[in-house]
Design a protein around this nucleic acid. Structure first.
Length: 199
DNA sequence: ATGTCGATTTGCT
DNA sequence: GCAAATCGACATA
């Protein structure tokens, strides 16, 4: 039993709940007929205007963040540190810039292709454990920002995978966010090897 | 095993 | 000018 997550999944008001529910769902890319996919193992919620860690904090609105103010269920991809493409899904309703960052996946389909894209000789957790590396493995770039996630080339599906256990912690790399840096908005599957390592 | 540092676009001051 | 929702190369131990 497999189905693409409908817009109603993303449209919910609680972005933190959506972040948790995305654990165990499967992120699929199908560019140039090449299909790659992985189970989402780690996410982070970003609560828009009220969240100092969000690009949309205090209603900040730029060319880059415009897609977060659009309809839910679309990709928000941006360049981090000038080199890494980070993939998020837009949630809530239009004009409410909430989003969930996908931080890690466990490879399922097209592993050889992902290895080639990453330039790795042998597979291992570093293939897709981390927000910057999973986008490379799946071929996701900033020009995909704004894409609907309702079908090819990019979507998230429910394959009926049941998550045994999950945990939450503060988010990674948002020390600049003051008190909001302490919010338990990061979620990951307990014990999974494909979760980003803390440095 | 742990630490420092460079890459390099976008947005804020 | 500077810092950023990161990663990997290289150094030192």
């Amino acid at each position: 039993m497999t189905m693409i997550l409908p817009v109603s999944f993303y449209q919910r008001e609680d972005v933190v709940q959506v972040a948790r529910d995305l654990l165990g769902k499967v992120l699929v890319s199908s560019f140039d007929g090449i299909r790659t996919a992985g189970m989402i193992t780690e996410t982070e919620a970003y609560a828009g205007e009220r969240d100092r860690a969000s690009h949309a904090w205090n209603g900040r609105r730029t060319n880059r963040t415009e897609v977060m103010y659009g309809p839910p269920g679309r990709a928000y991809v941006y360049l981090c540190y000038g080199i890494h493409h980070l993939f998020n899904v837009v949630t809530n309703r239009e004009e409410v810039p909430h989003a969930v960052l996908i931080r890690a996946i466990e490879p399922l389909d097209g592993i050889a292709v992902m290895q080639a894209r990453r330039g790795m000789q042998v597979a291992g957790p570093s293939l897709t454990a981390g927000p910057g590396v999973l986008t490379t493995a799946l071929g996701i770039r900033t020009h995909h920002s704004g894409l609907s996630l309702q079908g090819e080339p990019l979507y998230i599906e429910d394959r009926g995978i049941v998550i045994p256990e999950w945990e939450s912690t503060p988010r990674i790399g948002v020390d600049y966010a003051g008190e909001d840096a302490l919010l338990p908005y990061r979620f990951y599957i307990t014990g999974n090897r494909y979760v980003s390592k803390l440095k």
